[in-house]
Design a protein around this nucleic acid. Structure first.
Lengths: 264, 264
DNA sequence: AAGTGGTCTAGACCACTAG
DNA sequence: TAGTGGTCTAGACCACTTC
């Protein structure tokens, strides 16, 4: 196999009756899943690449294919892997529009989705303030990159994004590189820095427009704005981005469906 | 078996080589899942009750236990069923605090969860207006029940809920019954009317406080409020409740994590 | 034709719950 | 002790992709 696979730290469990080599305190498929997760998180298999076939994994870990499938199933459900019949199982790539609407929740008041047009207002380097440090789980005064974007929908400015990134995670990130991205910022995270955004944690509140934000959005001070404070997380819930968005919800809404599974 | 099980409309597929009785255009486990869903949705097994054992289902549908498990797995993942080892598989009951925080997203600014104290302001019957009819997928002028609640967190009024219910789905619902609920409203839906809320669809926007809502929340007119317009859905995405909430986010936030799976 | 994931089967043993 | 769900195995065939 091309990239070395994570080595299993236990012998295959004997099928029936015989004493297991090591008393597993957790199911085999969880063990396998942990190994696969580690391999993905460490970049052993990069985004867009295929992991070994199920048969190969079964042989490598010394377990049945069904066990491999169960481990892979959970990673697919989590969004870390994606299956393609006849081709293989691939590390999720944030390309195309998949992530666009996976993490972008502002839609027209009628529910119509629209692609935002992004204009970068500022790009600066600095030191983490207390709130940023807490959100990003880094030390105060650690180096960060701050980016302000103005997002327009249907030609009108609707969202001001203030993004804070831990500089240590994004070495060599310049405004030029940031501006040259041909896709979402999460795609940039992944393609250039191997950072796979898996989850976001969002806190929303209402506030009144003021100052530069009001100007950028073209609304009067005192207008109601929706503030979204989002932390993006990668494997092991490590924070990789803090983003404070202010949304003019006069003609758009934040849309969210809750509850597992889709329509039955 | 106690309640009649949904009858399979196809013969068991022959294991190897032999022609299948009916050319299945979808996997067997999806067929089984559909039958189980139907049984739950129709109330054949009520909330809190156990469905037949996996072995019994396998025998009944003429498939292997593994296939039953896969069908049940998806319903468990969807929240319609819950397994209890050694006891059985049960139709999800909205009792206890499970649903409380499953569908209630307002938390303290620091993220601390709190149980809301509910006070009913008004309880009226009427006819659906256009917006209500559209949201609930009912005809205009159909009978509805309208309830206004004031929710307090930590002793302070924080949320005004305007609930609209299709009266046809909740026969005999009176203010007395509504007030006598010992649990969440969704628990009442389920225990009294057999309605199982599975998903919600929410649209959020910022607005300015005004009128009775401002008074109830104890904020000045013109203060920013978070408006949540929620439609609760049951099986087959049938709407059962429209709820417009207005939240004072001065000391609380709407919290939401996005992305499948929990921490790895 | 070969290789991949997708479905399905049949049966084993384990862990938990209840009478 | 009996019954339940939980885990794991081994192997079959199917559907899709690529050569």
């Amino acid at each position: 196999m091309l990239p070395a696979m994570p080595s299993p730290n236990r012998a295959a469990r004997s099928p029936a009756g015989a004493a297991p080599a090591l008393p597993a305190d957790r199911p085999l498929y969880e063990e396998v899943r942990a190994h696969l997760t580690e391999g993905i998180a460490e970049g052993r298999w990069r985004a867009g690449e295929a992991i070994p076939s199920e048969a190969a994994l079964a042989a490598h870990f010394g377990v049945a294919i069904g066990t491999i499938r169960k481990a892979v199933d959970s990673l697919v459900a989590q969004g870390a892997l994606a299956r393609r019949q006849g081709k293989g199982t691939f590390v999720t790539a944030h390309d195309g529009r998949r992530l666009m609407f996976h993490f972008f929740h502002v839609v027209g008041a009628d529910g119509a989705k629209a692609y935002p047009e992004v204009r970068t207002i500022s790009f600066e380097r600095g030191r983490a303030e207390a709130a940023e440090a807490a959100a990003l789980a880094i030390a105060r005064d650690e180096r960060v990159v701050r980016i302000r974007n103005l997002l327009s929908l249907d030609g009108r400015p609707v969202i001001v994004d203030d993004i804070t990134l831990p500089a240590a995670l994004f070495p060599g990130l310049t405004e030029r590189i940031f501006a040259a991205r041909d896709n979402t910022i999460y795609h940039l995270f992944q393609s250039r820095y191997g950072i796979n955004v898996l989850r976001t944690d969002e806190r929303l509140r209402a506030q009144l427009a003021a100052g530069a934000v009001a100007t950028l959005l073209g609304v009067a001070p005192g207008s109601p704005l929706l503030e979204i404070r989002r932390v993006a997380l990668t494997f092991r819930d490590r924070p990789v981005e803090l983003r404070v968005s202010r949304v003019n919800t006069a003609a758009h809404v934040y849309h969210n469906t809750f509850g597992k599974g889709e329509a039955i």
